[in-house]
Structures are given as structure tokens and as C-alpha cells.
Simulated scan of single mutants.
Amino acid sequence: MTFANTTAYQKMFLGGWTFGHKNVQAANATQIGRARIGLDTMIEIFRNDSPMINLDWENATKDVNWTTDSDPFNPTNLSVVDFYKSLFGYMDAEENSKIWFNNRMWASMPINMNSFYNAVLRVLRPPGLSADDAGILAINHPMNQTVEDGLNTKATQKIVMFRIVLLLLVLCVITSSFTMLLVDEDSSY
């Protein structure tokens, strides 16, 4: 995607998205298989040793709600074993999609994110729904302030001045309290 800048009449790179990037940190099928074997071994050890110490570890989290009741993604009535076995489905994927954007243009990130997710939504739309009827509307209001602009506001300047005056006042009181003792000692009546 490019954007014709209205002031300089030049094309600028907004960004885009690409598919098929290999994630070097993602576990492959062999590593996931080894992790499953390790988890099964650990579960078997817990099953064999928990009666010795009277620990019911399999039902320790039964009927425990870790989040709010209205959370649609909250796994209900999962045992510890079921919870860990469900984690294998959420490991990192070997192939990733990347969204690229120009961070000098304020609206480029939301534009590219929106176009990517619109493409995904239109590919995965239910049958019978037209691609024109499926879409996500993104509204963006970028702030055209830099960090320097944010620090140069009147409120920030007033706070800085108040702190300087307070610091000077404190330093004056502390030094004057020591000098008063010295002057008081040398006085004669």
C-alpha cells in the first residue's frame, strides 16, 4: 500500500502484510511429541505418588473459576491434566503472518491491521454471505503530538515550577535551621 502525500506529492510506503514466515521458536511435531511424552510421564509420577501424601491433585482446580463468570473463553470444570493437555493446541505456529507498517505515518498501523483482518474475515466468512457484506470498520484518531510536545504543555510547566519552588523552600529551611543554632550559641546577653 502506498499513500500520495498531499504536501510533497510523493508516494510513501504505508505497509502491508505477508504470509508464510517461518517461526524459528515454534515447536515442530517432534518437539511437541516429546513434550507430550514428558507430560504423560510427569502425570504418571503424580498419580503414583499422590496417594502417599494424600493429595488429590487431579481435582484441585475442579469448580474453580479463575476469571469472571461472564468470560466466554473461561475453561469450565477442567482438571489439571485436561488443562495441560489443552495447552498443546495453543503452542506457537510454525508459519506466521506479518503485518508491516510505516511508523512515521500515524494511521498506517490501524489501516494495515484492519485490511489484514478484513481479508481474514472475508476468507473465513460463512457460506452464503457475500464478501461485500463482511467487514470490520476501524475508526482511528491519531494524536499528532510528539513526546516533546506532550512535555511542553502549560500544566507540565506549572508542575515543574511548583517542584522547583518547593525544593528551594525546603533547602532554605534546612540550611537556615543549622545556621540559627550557630548564631544562637554565639550570642551574649
Rank of each mutant, 00 (worst) to 15 (best):
I53M: 10
Q25R: 11
F116R: 09
N77L: 09
W66H: 06
A27K: 15
K11V: 05
P72I: 04
R47S: 08
D82K: 07
S50A: 09
L39G: 02
K11F: 02
R47M: 08
N48L: 06
F88E: 05
M109P: 04
T7F: 04
K11I: 08
T7L: 08
W57C: 03
A27L: 14
F101K: 14
Y90N: 12
F116M: 12
D82S: 12
F19Q: 15
S86C: 11
V81G: 10
N74C: 06
T18M: 05
K98W: 06
Q25C: 13
R36S: 00
F73R: 15
W100C: 09
N112P: 06
Y117E: 07
S70D: 15
D40E: 09
W66A: 12
Y9N: 13
K22I: 13
L87M: 14
R122N: 03
V24Y: 13
F13T: 13
H21L: 04
E58D: 05
W57K: 02
S108T: 03
I111H: 15
N96Q: 15
W17V: 08
I37N: 14
Q31T: 02
W57R: 11
F19D: 13
N114G: 07
G20Y: 05
D71N: 12
S50E: 03
D71T: 07
E95N: 15
D92I: 01
A93S: 12
E94T: 11
Y117Q: 02
N48H: 02
T7K: 12
D63M: 05
W66C: 08
L55W: 00
P110E: 01
V80E: 15
E58R: 07
M91V: 10
W66T: 11
I37E: 10
S50H: 01
D56M: 07
G38I: 00
A60I: 06
E95K: 14
G89S: 11
T68P: 10
S108P: 11
M52A: 07
L121H: 04
F88C: 08
E44C: 00
W106I: 10
M91Y: 13
K85D: 11
I99A: 00
W17E: 09
T76R: 15
R47G: 00
N96T: 08
E95M: 08
S79G: 10
A27P: 14
M109W: 05
R34N: 09
S50K: 09
S108C: 08
T6E: 14
N54I: 01
A35L: 06
A27C: 07
Y84M: 09
W106D: 12
N28E: 10
R47W: 00
G20K: 09
D63G: 01
A60G: 01
P51K: 13
A8P: 05
K22G: 08
P110M: 05
P72G: 06
N54S: 02
N23I: 01
M113V: 04
D40Q: 11
T67Y: 04
N118A: 03
A8F: 06
P72D: 12
K98F: 05
P75F: 01
N118G: 01
E94I: 05
T7E: 13
V24F: 13
F73Y: 04
N23P: 01
I32R: 15
M12I: 10
A27V: 03
Q10I: 08
A29N: 14
S108R: 05
T7N: 14
S115P: 01
I111V: 12
Y9M: 10
N28K: 09
S50Y: 00
A27S: 10
D63Y: 02
Y84I: 08
D63S: 03
Q10F: 04
N96Y: 09
A60N: 04
W106H: 14
I43R: 06
